[in-house]
Write a protein that binds this DNA or RNA. Structure first.
Length: 223
DNA sequence: CCCTGATTCGC
DNA sequence: GCGAATCAGG
């Protein structure tokens, strides 16, 4: 399997959405987890929250270097550049939703999002006033043509989307019957109540394949 | 053990 | 450029 433009695109998207390399490899099919990671690096995508990068590892383990008979007498004590304390990541801005413009850097007070409570799926619920799309936008996964809806006559097209109607995709982009849910949204969210329930589930670790809460239309593509 | 991402290096 | 092998950590 080769890295076509489309597959690279998918990789990028999934990687940025926070999917694990395994999930991505799974989804793309025909590639291993390592392949995905390797490709991601080659693409310049880099290390988002890696669970394994907690401690600073100076990368001192050349696998094939065989440093056995290494008589290297230079532990280079102060040779390394004094690492300047890197500026901590500012709040991970989540430009998820419509909100256009509004570029007020607010250099003085970067207010932390006011978390009011935690929703059932683990997503953060915020006050009705300052509601914004929760952290990672919905991860509608790849869908498979399970059953073409017969009532696509009055379908909701891309042009019909507003902040008030559910943007849950129905079908596949590019296909003639692709449309959107079109229901009334759960205020503050891009989806209706029902699809919010699907969209904002905590990313299940991994052992939990998603059989119980069935995906919109069939689940990952099978190969 | 399972998982994760990172890195290396032969192809 | 690709990805298996390997490493390192949770």
């Amino acid at each position: 399997m080769s890295w076509t433009d489309e597959r690279i695109e998918q990789l990028k998207g999934m990687w940025e959405k926070g999917m694990t390399a395994s999930q991505i490899a799974d989804e793309l099919g025909g590639v291993s987890r390592n392949a995905v990671i390797g490709k991601a690096h080659r693409l310049g995508l880099q290390s988002r929250p890696s669970p394994v990068k907690a401690t600073d590892v100076p990368r001192k383990k050349p696998v094939t270097a065989r440093p056995e008979a290494e008589s290297d007498t230079t532990p280079e004590p102060a040779a390394a550049a004094p690492v300047a304390p890197s500026a901590p990541e500012p709040a991970h801005a989540a430009p998820a939703e419509p909100a256009p413009a509004l570029d007020a850097p607010a250099p003085t007070a970067p207010p932390a999002p006011r978390i009011v409570s935690v929703g059932p799926g683990g997503f953060l619920r915020q006050g009705p006033g300052d509601q914004q799309a929760p952290i990672p936008p919905a991860p509608p996964r790849r869908l498979v043509p399970a059953k073409p809806s017969p009532e696509i006559a009055d379908k909701t097209s891309l042009l019909d989307l507003t902040e008030k109607i559910c943007k849950w995709p129905m079908g596949h982009p590019g296909e003639p019957d692709f449309h959107f849910c079109g229901e009334k949204v759960n205020p503050g969210f891009p989806y209706c109540v029902e699809h919010c329930g699907r969209a904002y589930q905590a990313q299940l670790p991994r052992g939990t394949r998603r059989p119980p809460p069935p995906l919109p239309f069939g689940g990952p593509r099978v190969r």
